[in-house]
Design a protein around this nucleic acid. Structure first.
Lengths: 147, 147
DNA sequence: GCATAAACTTAAGTCCGCTTAACTAAAAAG
DNA sequence: CTTTTTAGTTAAGCGGACTTAAGTTTATGC
């Protein structure tokens, strides 16, 4: 089997196993919080990319400003988000996670990572070293693709 | 840095990069088809796990039989699904993808995999071998966790 | 064979996410 | 200073995804 085909298949096999599991966890947790998927995604994004304005939410999720405003409103009501006036531009708002929003995200991430730890615990020290090296190669390649 | 911590971090870094990208592609494609996420998920599941009955859909997605029935109805109307009577139990239905449903899924998968090929093309032959081996280790470990 | 259970459907009603359209307020441009 | 652009909100309305409740048809248990 040629190498480019082999790695392609390895990647796809891993991707299938991994995506399945990961998505299940993700939706399960989102559901358990009582939040909808779009609401959950907004929080997740705020967690990873930090505070931003309303228009950024609208752009990143490809929805109208009106939709973004309504989505955010619900998260503010639920206490997960703080919506403050941007001091440098009084038209704009600054959206950031409230403490309880941060906690929610961290709980979710912890749950999502739990089975990864399960995974690694089944590997020998030698396997762990190999895997770790390989994943770092991949992550770096992914970054260079993105750029 | 201890090894168990190192591999943990490598996994998480890769997972973050990968999930982000993968989810983006996934929702983008689903949107381009005009299907909602739940509709798309049902098709995807039928593609991977093969034909099944209504009750299996209901269980796998954790929705009521009524909801499953309505979801499926729309996909039948759209021509992506065939709903036939189960010969061995005339109460039950057999759900399977239509040819156009299969095509849709395969197009989606092809798009989703395109950037993976981009990724691998940036790796040297040596790196490809390492990565391939590591992913196979991981995939196998994932299967043993699942069992 | 008759009662019960199972597989699915239909109808009514709720909530959510989204859109368009009309609006307010502040900044930028001229 | 006035006009225009930008950021966001509000309201009305649509369609989707659920739910519960009620009904149909077929299989199963006794």
């Amino acid at each position: 089997m040629p190498k480019t085909l082999q790695i392609s298949q390895s990647l796809r096999a891993w991707m299938d196993a991994f995506m399945h599991r990961s998505m299940r966890e993700w939706t399960r947790f989102a559901k358990s919080t009582g939040l909808s998927m779009p609401q959950f995604s907004v929080l997740m994004q705020l967690y990873h990319k930090g505070a931003c304005g309303m228009s950024e939410v609208s752009e990143r999720f490809d929805i109208t400003p009106a939709a973004a405003s309504q989505l955010v409103e619900k998260l503010v009501q639920a206490g997960y988000l703080e919506r403050a006036e941007d001091p440098s531009d009084r038209r704009a708002k600054l959206l950031k996670l409230s403490p309880s929003g941060v906690k929610l995200m961290e709980d979710g991430i912890r749950e999502r990572y739990r089975w990864l730890d399960d995974l690694t615990s089944r590997l020998s020290a030698e396997e762990q070293a190999k895997v770790s090296e390989a994943l770092d190669i991949l992550t770096q390649a992914a970054q260079s693709v993105e750029a």
